[in-house]
């Protein structure tokens, strides 16, 4: 059974935000009005964390793309009262939008603030309604959603592989953020496969995971010389 994981090379990342835009388009993430965004009701499955170090004028800016970490022992699924969030055998953590009651306990329990909530009825700008991604269901008001590692793409990849009666090749299953990264800073693949790029990179001396001491086993590795 494969175990999907992501590696983001922060030394390569320019912080351009193309991953965020690609993610929003791919997953039909609702774009909220500026006023709503100001109130903190903005939704990003792929978020960008910006931190500043040092004092003016010697400021060092750190940009860190942050999707859901798809923990192996996710705190969010432990607390869900209705089983609306789950981890499947391939290690993907998903959300059942039709079952979620919107109590937001998973959001409170997630140490990485990875989940987002539909605070209001999604309002679409003109034109957006004509180009939804048909592979991803749209969410309704009052439910929690989050990065799925583009699980809908995996379904297609699996179908192709099944038809040709072969295993999924490394680099065949590609999430939208990785596909659109101009710096090629994002890697994705099966971490259990010793030949995969992700496996090799996760063993790199630059590799680290965020808050490893919590023991939730995130499946997202960052690569950086300076350790975020």
């Amino acid at each position: 059974m494969p175990k999907w994981a992501m590696v983001i090379d922060l030394d390569k990342c320019t912080g351009c935000g193309a991953c965020m835009a690609a993610c929003n388009m791919e997953n039909n993430v609702a774009i909220v009005a500026p006023k709503e965004a100001q109130e903190g009701h903005v939704m990003f499955w792929m978020d960008m964390i910006t931190s500043y170090e040092g004092e003016y004028p010697n400021i060092e800016v750190k940009r860190m793309p942050k999707p859901c970490y798809h923990c192996d022992d996710p705190p969010c699924i432990k607390v869900c009262p209705v089983g609306a969030t789950f981890r499947n055998e391939e290690g993907l953590v998903g959300q059942v939008y039709m079952r979620c009651i919107g109590c937001r306990y998973c959001m409170a329990a997630c140490p990485f603030t990875a989940k987002v909530y539909n605070w209001g009825e999604p309002q679409w700008i003109d034109g957006a309604t004509t180009c939804f991604n048909p592979d991803v269901s749209r969410r309704m008001v009052g439910v929690v959603e989050k990065c799925s590692f583009c699980a809908h793409r995996l379904i297609k990849v699996k179908e192709d592989a099944d038809q040709e009666e072969r295993a999924i090749r490394d680099g065949e299953y590609v999430p939208a953020c990785m596909e659109n990264c101009p710096a090629d800073a994002i890697y994705f693949g099966d971490i259990e496969d010793r030949q995969s790029m992700v496996h090799k990179l996760s063993r790199n001396y630059r590799a680290f995971r965020v808050m490893e001491d919590l023991g939730v086993e995130p499946k997202l590795y960052y690569l950086s010389k300076r350790k975020a």
Partner: peptide, 15 residues
């Protein structure tokens, strides 16, 4: 009618 957007709750203060 309008969802919890009418409250002051937001990301990350979800409660």
């Amino acid at each position: 009618r309008y969802g919890l957007a009418v409250t002051g709750m937001n990301q990350p203060v979800t409660w």
